[in-house]
Design a protein around this nucleic acid. Structure first.
Length: 485
RNA sequence: GCACCGUUAGCUCAAUUGGCAGAGCAAGUGACUCUUAAUCACUGGGUUAUAGGUUCAAGUCCUAUACGGUGCACCA
């Protein structure tokens, strides 16, 4: 138990003082008209309304008191005066603090400055806050505290509330968009016996009753494809993936991914679909296809232009643009020398040739591209679940959509030949053949229709639309090490 | 895993070359019947993240630890 500070002790004294007066400081249900936003909407001079929320400001004028009552949807001013509530209730009022929840019933009126206000007739204490809130003007600035105690961040910081409201709206609009086009939302296993569909390290767990080692999924892809085998033609899943990898500004161990599969389509049709989807969401969320990112001082950092059509370019052409026209004609040694010399990249000796090129691509194309860019016809080694290109089997029919300097969405023409799929997975797995999902290959042998599919990183999309610099700013409770004293 | 930076009152921030740890908000008391970051007066509040070290003297220098931030590595 931490030593109690003066402010907490005072609040506990008030808590007991309330009880001594027969007032339960942790109240019960309180009928209101609705959220504070709804109360403000219903505001009409002379009408009596009921609202509930947290006290976030108190302006004491002696006999008159003005109090801000707030919830996640907004703020409304309440006016307290002994003449309206009586002397006994004012004694209760004096035992309230910033942060306490109250329910009020009062008459709508406009102050002389025009502020919509409830003239309180009756009020109830709904919950006492035993901890003082952060500074009212600057809010909670400490980054660590904002992540660990998101509830305090949400109470104190308008910007944080806006960010998460936007994220909620993004997810809602994506679901609506896909539902409108006949895609069915499905749920596939998060606990998997083989963690397939991507190459990341999984989290391990264990089922006691079955004595079975399991993994948290790193991707839903292989199960969604089983549904194509089963006859579904338009499906999506929007849920959490888990990857046991490093944490960064762009990576959280659990993150939200949308995956969409469409039978008889291909990667180009999927590119059209994601373009339409993201533009649709942008219009709804930001009201514009020009997304402005600003720093903490409100200075413009960049504008991202989502106006269609989005640029589509081949992987090799993009690499040539940054690494030289002759990049693919020179020797492996020359490429490594150029990458670590002229291009100033760190190239580890154990990298395979295609990984050296991929490194150049990631550092010099991906991280520097902010407006949407579809990168097409990637080398097949990078994407073992996509169909090879008919004209050049060293390439796959895919796009990688880059926006805001990150990989936002991969889209494939899905590989549906079970024998080729087995071969590609074996090449990928190397020694670790136990990682092959045999049941998935069995499903493909039953016949999977040609199909297009895409993934969409929801956290990264939320970063795009909110201008957040870190993925932790768009995840309500990002993973942190537990704090110990 | 590696490197650099940060951690001062409940919160937001100061503290010069190593020389008495300060302010605003919040809190307490008092004044004020329309305030909007209300205003005015007074008061209380600190083991400077933790553990050591150097020094006459450490928030400041050194070592270690914890947590966080950023970058690198990892992540088809």
């Amino acid at each position: 138990m931490e030593p109690e500070n003066e402010l907490i002790a005072q609040r506990r004294e008030k808590l007991e003082a309330l009880r001594a007066r027969g007032v339960e400081p942790f109240g019960r249900a309180f009928q209101t008209l609705g959220s504070i936003a709804e109360v403000r909407h219903a505001f009409k001079e002379g009408e009596s309304l009921r609202a509930a929320g947290r006290i976030t400001a108190h302006r004491d004028m002696g006999k008159s008191h003005f109090v801000d009552v707030r919830d996640a949807t907004g703020r409304i001013q309440a006016y307290f005066h002994e003449k309206e509530v009586g002397a006994e209730a004012m004694e209760i009022f004096n035992l309230l603090d910033l942060g306490d929840f109250i329910g009020v019933e009062g008459v709508c009126f406009l102050t002389k400055t025009g502020e919509p206000t409830l003239k309180v007739r009756k009020f109830e204490v709904l919950a006492k806050s035993l901890r003082p809130p952060p500074e009212k003007w600057h809010g909670l600035q400490d980054v660590e505290a904002r992540y660990r105690q998101r509830y305090v961040d949400l109470v104190a910081n308008e910007q944080s509330r806006e960010t998460f409201q936007k994220r909620i709206a993004i997810v809602r609009e994506i679901r609506r968009f896909l539902e409108d086009r006949g895609f069915a939302e499905v749920e596939t296993p998060i606990l998997q016996t083989v963690a397939g569909g991507a190459a990341a390290a999984p989290f391990s767990t264990h089922h006691k009753a079955l004595g079975l080692d399991l993994y948290l999924r790193i991707a839903p892809e292989l199960y969604l494809k089983r549904l194509l085998v089963g006859g579904f033609t338009k499906v999506f899943e929007l849920n959490r993936n888990f990857r046991n990898e490093g944490i960064s500004r762009k990576h959280n161990p659990e993150f939200t991914m949308l995956e969409v599969y469409w039978a008889y389509a291909d990667f180009e049709k999927m590119a059209d679909l994601i373009e339409e989807l993201i533009c649709n969401v942008a219009e709804k969320i930001c009201g514009s296809l020009e997304i402005e990112h600003r720093d903490v001082d409100g200075e413009m950092v960049r504008t991202i232009n989502l106006k269609r059509p989005w640029r589509r370019a081949r992987y090799v052409d993009l690499v040539r643009e940054v690494a030289g026209k002759d990049w693919f004609n020179i020797s492996s040694e020359q490429r490594r020398a150029r990458a670590s010399g002229e291009l100033k990249l760190e190239i580890l000796p154990q990298l395979a040739d295609f990984e050296v090129t991929q490194h150049v691509f990631e550092k010099l194309v991906e991280e520097k591209t902010f407006d949407p860019l579809f990168v097409t016809h990637c080398p097949k080694e990078l994407v073992p679940l996509a169909k090879q290109n008919a004209a050049d089997s060293s390439l796959v029919d895919v796009y990688e959509l880059i926006i805001n300097g990150v990989e936002m969405s991969p889209g494939y023409t899905e590989l549906n030949d079970p024998d080729v799929q087995r071969q590609r997975l074996l090449e990928q797995a190397g020694e670790e053949t136990q990682k092959i999902d045999e049941d998935f290959l069995l499903a493909l042998e039953h016949g999977m229709p040609p199909a297009g599919g895409f993934g969409l990183g929801i956290d990264r999309l939320a970063m795009l639309f909110t201008g957040a610099e870190s993925i932790r700013d768009v995840i309500l409770f990002p993973l942190l090490k537990p704090k110990r004293d």
